[in-house]
Amino acid sequence: MTPRLDPDRLKAARLSRFLPVEHAAYLAGVSSAAWRAWERGANSPRITSIRHAADSLGVDPMELCFPLDGGVATTPLQGPWTRRRSETPAPAPA
């Protein structure tokens, strides 16, 4: 089974590094239009392009893909952008 890019994980990885689309696309060697299409899920890149995208973001290529077994990803991206509002920790008492 060939890995497929998960558009949400691609965008989360890019945003976690504070990279604009243009910069991430340049580092991956693709056009900004192609990168945007990947993030929208309009196009699915080849495995070599997934590898280049992962390299440009400094992550393992499988972190950007849907789990192959159809279950929960084993290496989820973490950060404040992935939490739901109800999961945000309460401020410490003063």
Rank of each mutant, 00 (worst) to 15 (best):
L68W: 02
L19R: 03
A37R: 05
M62G: 08
D69G: 04
C65K: 07
A73K: 06
L5K: 01
R17Y: 09
A42Q: 08
R4Y: 09
A25N: 01
G71D: 04
P91C: 09
M62N: 09
N43D: 12
H52D: 07
G41H: 06
A94E: 13
R4W: 00
F66V: 05
R83P: 05
M1A: 05
V59T: 13
A13Y: 02
L15S: 11
V30R: 10
P61A: 03
M1T: 11
D6G: 00
S49E: 15
A12W: 00
R83C: 13
P80E: 13
S56G: 10
T2W: 00
R9S: 13
P89H: 02
P93N: 14
S32V: 07
L5W: 01
C65P: 05
R84A: 15
E39C: 01
A94R: 12
G29A: 04
R17Q: 12
L19I: 10
A28W: 00
E22A: 13
D55V: 05
T48V: 09
P3A: 03
G29T: 14
V30W: 02
P91V: 02
I47T: 11
A13K: 08
G29H: 08
R17C: 07
A12C: 03
T74M: 15
A34R: 11
G79H: 07
A12E: 12
Q78D: 13
K11E: 11
P93H: 12
F66G: 01
L68R: 15
P80L: 10
A54K: 02
G58H: 09
R84E: 15
R14I: 08
L19W: 05
G79M: 13
R17N: 12
A24E: 10
S32W: 00
A12M: 11
R36M: 10
Y26D: 10
L15M: 14
Q78F: 03
P91D: 06
A90C: 03
M62F: 14
S32Y: 02
A12S: 05
F18Q: 15
C65Q: 02
E63T: 12
P76G: 05
L19Q: 07
D8S: 01
L27V: 08
D8C: 06
S44Q: 14
P93L: 05
L27N: 13
E87N: 01
P45N: 00
P45K: 02
A12V: 05
I50K: 04
K11T: 11
S16T: 11
L19A: 01
T88C: 02
A24F: 03
S32K: 14
D69P: 02
T88Y: 11
L68S: 10
C65G: 06
